[in-house]
């Protein structure tokens, strides 16, 4: 188990380093930041001085090392549009994104697993057909359209829920459901097929031959069916995270996604960069957690 965890940690670290490096390279490709910082009347000497001050005269690997060191300290630089350290902006916005993603994920997994199990148990029946149709449509409707339609119907026409902004739980419902609809559909479809597969498995037949009580039988069934679902949930959680960007923009939800999109229009690259790194790190971390919990559930992976 320890070896397995270490292996996963190493893999996660590699993905993270690759992303950090790509961001660094792209930043250098985009031209010298000096041009943004000095006025148009600056002399060549001014520019050289500024470059030296910023360390841009150093060899690229020294710059890269310094960049990594800065990131490791959580220093993402200054935001010139907010006139504040980017770290503070991220620290303020991240809990909102996390709340949205977690709410959407809870919605997606609870509803998805319930519907999927129901469909599998009633396989071939009317419930099954409805759930399957639902799952198919859910995987075809993009979250941002769903979000707009929700706003139009539930906020504008019916006035039941707030259309945007943050506040109580009622502010969270529409964005969370819009964001969770796609993973919900995916999870329900996979839960259905995984449960059916498990039901057909030899060991479930054997379990039946043991004459165990229905609850024991069900616990064997659900444990086995949960393995592929957990793998998928990890992937979906990652997609949810990038999905927050678009849903946050629609609902003016003050998370890191909205921060990034606004920063994009004001060309505040330090923010964009920081959001990308934070999101990627969260994504990698979540996948790591899923893999480890998978190892905890499936003894065959451990050895």
């Amino acid at each position: 188990m320890v070896r397995y965890v270490l292996q996963r940690l190493l893999q996660a670290a590699i993905v993270l380093v690759v992303v950090v490096t790509i961001v660094f390279v792209l930043e250098r490709l985009s031209g010298s930041p000096v041009d943004l910082l000095v006025s148009s009347r600056a002399t060549a000497a001014d520019i050289t001085a500024m470059s030296k001050y910023l360390g841009l005269e150093d060899p690229i690997y020294v710059q890269y090392g310094r960049y990594l060191l800065r990131l490791a300290q959580g220093d993402f630089g200054e935001s010139f549009s907010y006139r504040a350290p980017v770290r503070d902006l991220i620290v303020n916005a991240f809990p909102y994104t996390a709340a949205l993603a977690v709410a959407a994920f809870i919605f997606a997994s609870v509803v998805g697993v319930t519907l999927g199990t129901l469909a599998a148990v009633r396989s071939g029946g009317r419930v099954d057909a409805v759930v399957r149709g639902f799952g198919f449509i859910g995987q075809s409707v993009p979250s941002f359209w769903l979000a707009i339609i929700f706003v139009m119907i539930f906020a504008v026409k019916l006035g039941w829920l707030p259309a945007f902004g943050s506040g109580g739980v009622d502010h969270l419902i529409l964005p969370a459901v819009a964001l969770g609809a796609f993973p919900m559909a995916a999870i329900s479809r996979l839960t259905r097929s995984a449960t059916l597969d498990a039901l057909r498995a030899d060991h479930m037949l054997f379990e039946r031959s043991k004459g165990v009580s229905p609850s024991v039988f069900l616990s064997h069934l659900l444990r086995n069916a949960s393995l592929p679902v957990i793998t998928l949930s990890g992937i979906q959680l990652g997609e949810l995270l990038s999905g927050t960007i678009i849903v946050e923009t629609i609902f003016a939800w003050p998370g890191v996604g909205q921060l990034a999109i606004q920063a994009l229009s004001t060309r505040d690259y330090n923010i964009v960069q920081a959001v990308v790194l934070v999101q990627t790190a969260t994504f990698v971390l979540l996948n790591l957690l899923v893999d480890i919990s998978y190892g905890w559930l499936d003894p065959r992976v451990r050895t």
Binding site: I245, A260, I261, V272, V276
Partner: peptide, 18 residues
Amino acid sequence: DAALAFPFLLVAIVLAGI
């Protein structure tokens, strides 16, 4: 594996930003 773990929307944002 790395490509599958890549947050594409974020990459697009960085590229578009640059």
